[in-house]
Design a protein around this nucleic acid. Structure first.
Length: 280
DNA sequence: GTGCCCCCGCCAGTTACGTCA
DNA sequence: GATGACGTAACTGGCGGGGGC
């Protein structure tokens, strides 16, 4: 992976005419987020002021299927952490899904660390897969991918809206609340941030594309204007009304420019003065 | 103050699985 | 039922920062 410091210095801070950009650019993101805001595209290697995981003004349209389907606010807070989630579901569909809900082992260990946690998860998975081997009669130990229930997804979405990252305490609390492993929450938030960023990148690319189109059109218009002016300049009528060309003289001391050749004008006092000898 | 090591959190990229048309 | 596309949970390896020594 390319180091984040290898930025080319190209930033997305292109500004178009105001009428092109009704949304004011948000303030630069926090340092950590700014580092995370590098575009995956090779064209955009420096932090984008557009991209903010916490404040996604142009990404409101982005909602996961879970968020679209569910009504988070109705679910949020409606979960009794002392009850299993299968009871919380409000329709039969959910209950059906709960059957395949994840977190077969929600043993929240007092881990402190990714590596160790991964190792422990690996150990758990190895144990569970060994059980499967016993049950299934020797099935290969493949990783289990279990979909989150609508309720879990809705709560996670709500939490993500509040803060796109979790501190350890929040992670543990939420893990208990949702009956998930902390590692699952970690993964979900990482994937969610990645999806948000991807969506934001798409929006930004679309926006820049529009900017590019407008600038191209502006460039075309200006070039035409230049051509017209040159054509006008070459025509005899252009010179007939022109005043005689003037000679511009620059003061060597103060670098002011004065018009010296027009007969009606007096030359500047400094123009008649003896040139200043450069100091050695 | 500086360098080294370890831990931790995050990220980009990838893999693998579940769902659906 | 088979299949490909798609969404996403989970994994991997790397990087930067913080803390201890």
């Amino acid at each position: 992976m390319a180091k984040k410091d290898d930025c080319l210095g190209l930033s997305l801070s292109l500004r178009c005419p105001e009428n092109l950009n009704p949304d004011p650019l948000p303030p630069p993101p926090p340092k950590r987020l700014a580092a995370a805001a590098h575009f995956p595209l090779s064209l955009f290697r420096s932090p984008s002021p557009f991209m903010q995981l916490q404040k996604i003004s142009r990404t409101d349209a982005f909602q996961t299927a879970a968020a679209r389907q569910a009504e988070p606010r109705t679910f949020l807070g409606g979960i009794d952490i002392n009850r299993t989630l299968t009871v919380v579901g409000c329709d039969g569909e959910d209950e059906d899904e709960e059957g395949m809900v994840t977190s077969p082992n929600s043993t929240v260990s007092s881990i402190s660390g990714k590596r160790r946690e991964r190792e422990e998860n690996d150990g758990e998975r190895a144990a569970s897969s060994s059980m499967e081997i016993e049950e299934d009669g020797g099935d290969a130990a493949s990783r289990k991918k279990l979909r989150l229930s609508k309720v879990q997804a809705a709560v996670l979405e709500e939490t993500f809206k509040e803060h796109s990252t979790l501190n350890p305490k929040q992670k543990m609390d939420l893990a208990k609340k949702l009956n998930l492993r902390p590692r699952q929450l970690e993964v979900w938030f990482q994937n969610r941030r990645a999806r948000t960023k991807l969506k934001q990148t798409e929006v930004d690319c679309e926006y820049l594309s529009r900017c590019c189109e407008n600038l191209t059109e502006e460039n075309r218009r200006l070039q035409k204007e230049v051509r017209d002016l040159r054509a006008l300049k070459l025509s005899p009528q252009f010179y007939s009304n022109m005043t005689p060309p003037t000679t511009l003289t620059m003061c060597p001391r103060c670098e002011h420019v004065a018009c010296a050749a027009t007969p009606s004008r007096q030359p500047p006092t400094w123009a008649a003065a003896k040139p200043v000898e450069p100091k050695s």
